[in-house]
Structures are given as C-alpha cells and as structure tokens.
C-alpha cells in the first residue's frame, strides 16, 4: 500500500474517476425500462432492472464526493496539482518491473493463448517471464523486455494481417514453428545475458527446466484427464494426442 501522503493524492484522482463512473452508470441505468413495457411485462419502478444499478450509481457518486472532500481537506488535491506541474516521464525500477509483469501477462492472455499452440505459448511465456525477474537485474529485464516485446509485436502484425493465415496455409502449424524459433532465440539471448554469472546461469537453467516441465505436466492433465478442450491446439498438442491415443 502507498504512504499516507501518496494515498491522499491518489484519492483525489480516484474520486474524480469514481464520480465520472457513477454518472456514466446512472446514465446507463436511466436507459433501462422503468415504466414502459419490456418483454410483454409492464414495468413499475420497483421491479425495474434499473433499481439496483441506480442505488449503486448514487452510492458511488456520494462516496466519490466524500473521498474528494477528504482529499481536498488533507492536502491531497494540492499535492496532486503540484505533482502534475513537476511531472517527469522517468520510470522507476519498480515501474519497469510492473510494466514487465503486465507485458508478460497481457501478451500471454491476449496474444499467445488464443492463437498459438497451448504448450508452445506457455514455454514462450515462461522463457521470458522467469529469467526476466530471476536474473534480478534491471538492465537484463529491459533487454529481455525489448526482445520479447519485439517478437510479440511481429506476432501481432502477423495476426492482424492475413499473413498468419497465408503462412499456415503454406505449411501446417507455421505460427507454432515461428514461436518455437522465437523461444529458442529468447533462450539463447537469456543464456548470453547469464554468461559469466553463476547465480544467473543456475537460475537460467532452473527457469528453462520449469518452462518446459510446467506445460509438459499441465497440458496432458487438462487435455486428457480433465478433458478440457484447450484454447488453441496446435502442433505440439496434436502430437501429444497422437502419442496419448496410441498408448491407450
């Protein structure tokens, strides 16, 4: 949690956002059927679907206003205005780690999981996420973020253009192969960053093992034992299926 002074400053911004949110929520609620007929049922205010949203909207606005008054009284608003005047774009170390975490989770959920083979997406994700933080070096984190972010950007371009479909039509599992190549590249790059430092090298090795073993355990458990159809079953998952059904 933030320090007291920071909290009051943040309260000022949050209170504005809350009041705006409350107003938007009320505006949406007033569009819901209040008296007119909906679905053949004649409405009265107390059975309207807008009733609870209205209570919530008014509640949020009132509490947002209380928060704002408290922030103004305790000097949070003044501090916020001062900090806006002396605003600089310098990102702290913890800020970089925060962005790194969001980059990893965001790309994993929105880019890799729905489009790339489940197994490969986990290996690629962990190959970045573990060394990036386990190396415990701000410089290494930034370098790995640039490499990983670059690959993700290429993947985004591939997927938003017809390029990915064209590639997959050319030969099966082309995007999975691309991610495989990127994963190997990422690991070579991470290994180079770990060179000459025993702690980093040992963490890189552990990370690599974890990155492979985790999907190796999770994929069969979910796909074959819990019978959960995976979000994208590409080359590796299909290979696992062939092995699993030939062994059964």
């Amino acid at each position: 949690m933030m320090e007291k002074k920071q909290l009051r400053k943040a309260d000022f911004v949050t209170s504005i956002l809350l009041i705006l949110f409350g107003i938007w929520e009320l505006a949406q609620s007033f569009q819901m059927p209040m008296r007119d007929t909906y679905g053949g049922v004649r409405n009265v205010w107390y059975v309207s679907p807008a009733l609870m949203p209205l209570v919530i909207g008014f509640g949020v606005i009132i509490l947002g206003a209380v928060l704002m008054i408290n922030s103004i009284r305790t000097g949070g608003a003044a501090d916020f205005i001062k900090s806006v005047q002396s605003f600089s774009l310098k990102i702290s170390d913890s800020g970089v780690r925060f962005i790194g975490t969001l980059l990893a989770i965001g790309t994993f959920v929105y880019l890799l999981i729905p489009r790339v083979d489940f197994f490969m997406s986990i290996v690629f994700f962990l190959s970045f996420f573990i060394p990036a933080f386990a190396f415990d070096s701000g410089e290494d984190l930034k370098k790995l973020m640039v490499f990983y972010g670059g690959v993700c950007l290429i993947m985004v371009i591939l997927f938003i253009t017809p390029a990915a479909d064209a590639l997959n039509a050319l030969f099966m599992f082309a995007t999975d192969v691309l991610i495989l190549i990127a994963t190997i590249g990422l690991n070579i790059y991470a290994a180079r960053l770990a060179k000459g430092d025993d702690t980093k090298r040992s963490r890189f090795r552990t990370g690599l093992i974890v990155a492979i073993v985790t999907p190796l355990v999770l994929t069969p458990v979910f796909r074959f034992f819990l019978l959960v159809p995976l979000p994208h079953e590409g080359g590796i998952v299909q290979l696992m299926q062939i092995i699993y059904y030939s062994l059964r």
Partner: peptide
Amino acid sequence: AIFMPIIAV
C-alpha cells in the same frame, strides 16, 4: 521469480 510465473500460468 521462479514460482510466480507458474502461478500466473
């Protein structure tokens, strides 16, 4: 840094 990424997965 080793187990948190696994938790994320």
